[in-house]
Amino acid sequence: MGLRAPHYSYILKHKPPVPWFEAITENFTGIEGGAGGKPIRVLEKIRELYPVALHGVSLSIGSSDPLDKDYLKKIRSLAARIEPQWMSDHLCWTSVEGKHLHDLLPLPFTEKVIQYLVSRILYVQDFLGRKILFENVSSYMTFSNSEMTEWEFLSELSKRADCGILLDINNIYVNSVNHGFDPISYINGVPRDRIGQFHLAGHSNQGRYLLDTHDHPITAPVWNLYEKALRCFGPIPTLIERDENIPAFPELMKEVHKANSIAEKVHGKKRISTSITDRTPTVVAVDHH
């Protein structure tokens, strides 16, 4: 489950039976002049109880700007402190000319962009001393100069950069509606051995397009696609995300139970990965340098 501030006290008090939590990396890197405070204290307490994954939103791997070394040092330092099971970020750009948009902006799907990203991902993985999962983002526009589908782009990139894929099932569905493709083709088109994690979330219907708002319960088409993804990729550790209209923790647990019941239906109880520690990730190194 995604670790969110309204749930901190509940988690620490009740220690709910959740196999792992995912924390947004940048929420715990501090600000200029202070890298501590309440956020990191809470994360360290939770880390004592649960495995934690760090999920970044500002790596800006697709930006034309040089990689931000200070930022990389900060997340490397955080990783040394927290010892996350996984580290991930998004396949997108979030900044240009030193200005940050704090949004996950889409990339053109071209060979030239793949070449550009491969060198940057290899550098980041080398700098952090571990492999990273990259998440497919939701989008509302594509580029007229794209040369391939999103899933072809993702597949080729993950192979050449030797990185993992964090497959967001909701984002696949949102994009399939916004750009008019078959989401099953997407699922069938990405390499099995690269998938390290699934994300599930809710979206909102804006009439002419779907918006990836993470403010609603997961919709039926996304649950259906999740089931198909489980059949295709096997028992992949799955995360429920909620960033707005965050309900009480027990309410959110209902979605966790639903995800578990679908996984049980597909793979049977014994095959279900209930913890990231009981599934050896095929593409994620956890050694620290």
Binding site: L101, L105, M141, S144, H179
Partner: peptide
């Protein structure tokens, strides 16, 4: 013209999603 054109949503509206979200 960099934005792919289709009949679901026009190019300006597609960009506007990002502008408003920003």
């Amino acid at each position: 013209t960099l934005v792919y054109k289709d009949n679901r949503l026009n190019q300006t509206n597609r960009l506007d999603v990002y502008a408003e979200a920003y």
